[in-house]
Design a protein around this nucleic acid. Sequence first.
DNA 1: CTTGAACATCGATGTGTGTCTATGTCTGAT
DNA 2: ATCAGACATAGACACACATCGATGTTCAAG
Lengths: 119, 119
Amino acid sequence: MSKSLLVLGPAETAACCSPLSSQPLSAQQAGQVAPLLKALADPVRLRLMSLVASHAGGEACVCDLNDAFDLSQPTISHHLKVLHDCGLLDREKRGVWVYYRARTEALASLGALIGSASP
Amino acid sequence: MSKSLLVLGPAETAACCSPLSSQPLSAQQAGQVAPLLKALADPVRLRLMSLVASHAGGEACVCDLNDAFDLSQPTISHHLKVLHDCGLLDREKRGVWVYYRARTEALASLGALIGSASP
DNA sequence: CTTGAACATCGATGTGTGTCTATGTCTGAT
DNA sequence: ATCAGACATAGACACACATCGATGTTCAAG
């Protein structure tokens, strides 16, 4: 079966709407955006996201990320999977190593949705 | 005991730092920001926040909010308390009614922290 | 083919959370 | 003083989640 219609992750279709303060979010919109926020609403995942996004080259290897935390390797792997599944992190395997890359457009859309001052 | 030193809620001291992609978040910073995101990371609370923020006059009465959901009154009250406790919502009682107001500066700080494209 | 390293998946466990019903606390009106 | 309405709190319960150790999978090297 073809996956050609699903090249875009959930993050692309969720946060591309008007800011919170401009008009009420529909139940459906809220249901799409909330999972993205939930993925970020964990101290470890927030730091992971920040580490990957601010890393040189725009990507970071899992081995580097593991060392930055006092947690087990499966736990870090789990958090990375959460961020990847909701479309906030891209994943690429090169040899034995796996590199993650932040989806800055998704982050930008989310940020724009949350914070937009009204006059 | 005086509360004069606590006029500012948690939201003011949490999200006033550099964007995610510029430099790695410290564990302490992540620990301060995550609760704010966790408060927003629920479809009901996200809609509540949006309803209050986009409401005429910048504030909304609880009775109005209750009618917008198919949930019990205590449940809505609980969600409003979560948003209020983390500093995203201001609370004011006038007569029998209670009005909530969105802290747009807190929302703006959070949005800026999450979404900021890097060159 | 075997070994070791990098990473993911699985199953278990304690803790957190969203929701409800029932009850409490104000406040204005009768 | 009593009553009714608006909202908060308390307790209970089902479910989700963060974490771990153990195990599986994939790949490169020897």
